[in-house]
Design a protein around this nucleic acid. Structure first.
Lengths: 148, 148
DNA sequence: CTAGGAGCTGGAGTCGGCTCTAGGTCAAGC
DNA sequence: GCTTGACCTAGAGCCGACTCCAGCTCCTAG
């Protein structure tokens, strides 16, 4: 089971550039094998590992952290506490990011609602276009951004 | 109610640099007033608007989109459909981002669980450190990244 | 009167994460 | 023999969103 860089790019969604870049950044657990002509040969393991990396990246883990984690895995057994700590920390960040986004979603939903009402023919409760008379900050029970 | 750039920085959490930068990028609905000596003078409205902007930015709206939205508001009444469209689109993106993050969280939680079990003295079901025998991609019912 | 602190402008620098270019190797197909 | 296409390396470039710098103007306090 060996794949060329192009094939890996195709099935991971990463670009060949990104794959070489990741390699250079030390994101592979063991050095990518080389075939004739110095061409990279990837194993299924490599692809599986990449899949994990992609998920970690997608959840906002920066490359240095990913590299650190990779280093720990490469070192082998004995540093599981550190790996766990790293993962937990990242989980925290993802959780709080979801929380933050959910809050933002509330505001956005509120504003969408305002415009929907406004365009549904209801007479504008406060004002439509650009309410100069102090608005935008406060609304029903601490809902910011009521205007515009 | 007028504030200096420093005061606004303080109560929005943005840097004074960022405030000037935002102004330059057209993120204020109307031009920031100037006091004696050409100093910026912000109104409560400005701060309220910034608060909205900060939330939109925090939820990943890029500056150009934020500028576009600001432009629409500045134009005044008549383009509410476009504002609504812009907000809905952004809401979509935020929603799907939350979805993606939640999925990532699943994987991370799974891996955290694996390491917790492993460190809790349970004998490693498969292998602890670095399971060469093909792993990492498949696990209980399509759970990726079982290894490491 | 002078030193500090906040503010001003225009423009350069930074950082993360790729992305692209230039110049080259190699194997296969026409 | 020649082109095409996938790959190689080293290194430059890009984008977004700031961040910082140099060199200046004010005002206020000591």
């Amino acid at each position: 089971m060996s794949l060329s860089i192009g094939q890996v790019a195709e099935r991971t969604g990463l670009s060949v550039h990104a794959l070489r870049f990741y390699e250079q950044e030390g994101v592979f657990v063991d050095p990518v094998r080389r075939g004739p002509g110095g061409r990279r040969v990837y194993s299924q393991d490599d692809v599986d590992w990449l899949t994990v990396c992609i998920i970690l990246r997608a959840s906002g883990m920066p490359l240095p952290a990913l590299r650190r984690y990779t280093d720990l895995v490469r070192e082998g057994a004995g540093n599981e506490e550190e790996r766990l700590a790293l993962l937990r920390e990242h989980r925290e960040r993802v959780t709080s990011q979801i929380g933050r986004l959910t809050q933002c979603l509330d505001l956005i939903g509120f504003k969408v609602g305002v415009y929907e009402d406004l365009l549904d023919g209801a007479q504008p409760a406060v004002e439509p276009g650009r309410p100069r008379p102090s608005d935008g900050g406060a609304a029903p029970a601490s809902t910011p951004g009521t205007s515009a």
